[in-house]
Design a protein around this nucleic acid. Structure first.
Lengths: 190, 190
DNA sequence: CATATATATCACCGTTCGGTGACACCAGGT
DNA sequence: ACCTGGTGTCACCGAACGGTGATATATATG
């Protein structure tokens, strides 16, 4: 499991294979087949062995119960984006989930999404369909930019390592969310 | 060139290699080295051989010169998103650009971005930094969802093949953009 | 006809891939 | 002492990988 994580964060999902994994772990690859049956089984075990999506998000600051929905969603997006930018394993899994479908990637997908929504629901927020779509859309945008950045293919001159650029993106998210919730009846809470 | 495109759209970028490409093209792989020097050279040639990002976007309907910025941007995002969803080659290149860096992927990145911005600038629109960031962010979100969809890892139950879901996403984009431009002075037009 | 040059094919190299069969080891139980 | 079952190592397989040398064919120029 540790060897798999090391390979993922170091070389990316394209470097994952039976031979490479056994080499990294310092054991013979036949053990992989003996214990996990196949690579798929190992991925499934990896999926069950750890929290794929560290739940940094639900440490959302406590908001007063009457805080506007827009503030909550904005905070969620910013925190989640920052966490994603710092978590290179999550980035690699996201990259993988865009390319391949295996027990690990589907599990990661599920975990990621549930996590964000749960953060809201735990506060008694039951977002409607459009709100969910908006959150997903913006979060997806942040993920996309982050992945582009971490493979050194930044979009235009937007360097997400530059604090100014991060600030710009976050400001835009704030404004988008704020505008989205204006002229929209407050969603029932609690 | 045609063989490369076939492989990309059929098996994805992971299926691209000297052997597979020569096999698909029905020639010996040594010709690849003779004519292009290496796989990199071939990718560069492919990049120069065609319009990587079909400029569907600049067939934006003619808007009256006093059309609000929000309408223009919304239209751009929807058209661009739909075009991307129909273009499996562009999807594969986008997937590749998130994973690897080679002459083809960097060129694709550039082409994609310039295209969107040019669509605006050709109409005399000189978007400020925040507007550019907003467009990029939303477009990135659409790309992410599209890629997730086309690898059969849809987010939550959002099936982009379902017209209703597409409608929902597009509605959300409209509302986000509309809200973003409200309470913001009109940007000077050409 | 002869020669030079470009074009294309074949055979081969070493390496890595995913996957498997055979064998050595080393407990515990009988 | 003997079997047994879990554990680990080694050697090996066929296939595919990226890459290269030698060689045939065809064309064009002298």
């Amino acid at each position: 499991m540790d060897a798999l994580e090391r390979i993922l964060t170091r070389e990316g999902f394209t470097g994952v294979g039976v031979n490479a994994l056994a080499r990294e772990a310092g054991v013979d690859k036949v053990l992989i087949y003996r214990y996990f049956g196949s690579m798929e089984g190992l991925l499934a075990a990896f999926r069950d062995s750890r929290e794929l999506c560290p739940r940094v998000v639900d440490v959302l600051d406590e908001f007063p119960p009457d805080a506007p929905m827009s503030a909550l969603v904005t905070r969620l997006l910013l925190k989640s984006g920052r966490a994603f930018r710092k978590n290179s394993l999550a980035q690699e899994l996201a990259r993988w989930e865009l390319t391949d479908k295996n027990p690990l990637t589907v599990a990661f997908s599920r975990a990621m999404e549930k996590d964000e929504l749960r953060s809201l629901e735990e506060r008694g927020v039951r977002p409607d369909g459009e709100t969910v779509a908006a959150v997903i859309l913006l979060l997806s945008g942040v993920h996309y930019l982050t992945l582009r950045e971490s493979v050194k293919n930044p979009i235009l001159d937007m360097d997400l390592n530059d604090p100014g650029t991060v600030q710009l993106v976050e400001t835009v998210i704030e404004k988008l969310v704020k505008g989205f919730f204006e002229g929209r009846e407050e969603v029932p809470r609690g």
